[in-house]
């Protein structure tokens, strides 16, 4: 799935300061109602960001804005160091080719088979085009990662909700993007399937050292990201040391505003009534 670990570590060290995404006082409103207000944050290469918040708090809006699917009314957004705030749609495709995104519910194309769905970014991103056999291999590899290599010829409607979400993860990662964004990957799933999905996300993060942003309503998802790492030898998740997850930060959204930004430990120790309630409730 990935290259040699030492190569990756070296690569990660060299690019430690490389900025992936930056929001500067971003505000977006729909029909006059602000969806997000004055949001500022930054994420660097290799870091992970977990955005927590209840439904309607603006988490998805942040994700969509980060790759230019939504435009800010004020403020600026930088993706891979480039200002995308007012960039034309067609000029964004090359940057988006470096990002993988899992949408809520997967957003798989109903009319395409699983193989066609997963190969879609390879076929359509100009900068990523490859030969047909290479494409087939990459699709198979990506589906094998989520243990769904036997579903190549099936259609999304033939799969369960959890399986569709896993195909979505395969599609998001088939291009081996520098930044992977997961929009509520566990929403609406039973706890066992949800934990399996989170295990896949942690595995992907640790094997490829991809910069990862995940938005979720479940506090447990943040905990899994913060407390586990994927062990290659055991081929399973194991407890992570603080050094393993040093690049992980959490943010909490409330009514379109950022009310917390910090580490898992800081989150758990927060005295803020909303955050405490949020943390305890899950």
């Amino acid at each position: 799935m990935t290259g040699h670990p030492s190569t990756q570590t070296a690569h990660r060290d060299a690019s430690q300061e490389y900025e992936i995404l930056r929001f500067e006082h971003v505000t977006i409103a729909f029909d006059g109602d602000p969806a997000i207000q004055d949001i500022s944050f930054q994420i660097r290469h290799g870091e992970s960001l977990v955005i927590l918040g209840s439904a309607g708090s603006g988490k998805t809006v942040i994700l969509k804005t980060s790759i230019g699917l939504l435009r800010p009314e004020s403020g600026r957004v930088f993706l891979f160091g480039e200002d995308i705030t007012h960039r034309k749609e067609l000029d964004l495709f090359d940057l988006r080719a470096r990002v993988g995104m899992l949408f809520q519910e997967g957003a798989l194309f109903d009319s395409l088979t699983i193989e066609e769905n997963v190969s879609y970014p390879l076929l359509n991103q100009k900068t990523l085009r490859c030969t047909e056999s290479e494409m087939h291999n990459r699709v198979e590899e990506s589906l094998r990662f989520v243990e769904l290599e036997h579903t190549l010829e099936k259609f999304p409607s033939e799969l369960s909700g959890g399986m569709r979400r896993r195909v979505g993860i395969a599609r998001a990662n088939v291009t081996k993007p520098e930044l992977v964004i997961y929009d509520s990957p566990t929403a609406g799933l039973d706890p066992i399937t949800a934990n399996n999905i989170m295990a896949l996300i942690v595995k992907e993060r640790d094997l490829r050292r991809a910069t990862t942003i995940i938005v979720t309503q479940r506090f447990q998802d943040g905990q899994i990201m913060a407390k586990y790492r994927y062990d290659r030898e055991q081929q399973n998740l194991v407890a992570a040391s603080p050094a393993d997850v040093a690049g992980l930060r959490l943010m909490v959204m409330k009514d379109g505003r950022l009310v917390f930004q910090g580490t898992q430990q800081e989150l758990e120790q927060s005295r803020d009534p909303y955050i405490s309630k949020f943390v305890l409730r899950h």
Binding site: L69, E89, M101, F103, A107, D110, P121, N124, K126
Partner: peptide, 17 residues
Amino acid sequence: SMKVTEQIDAMRALGTD
């Protein structure tokens, strides 16, 4: 249907106008 299931957004995110 594609719009409400975010398939249009997915299309844009995956390099298609």
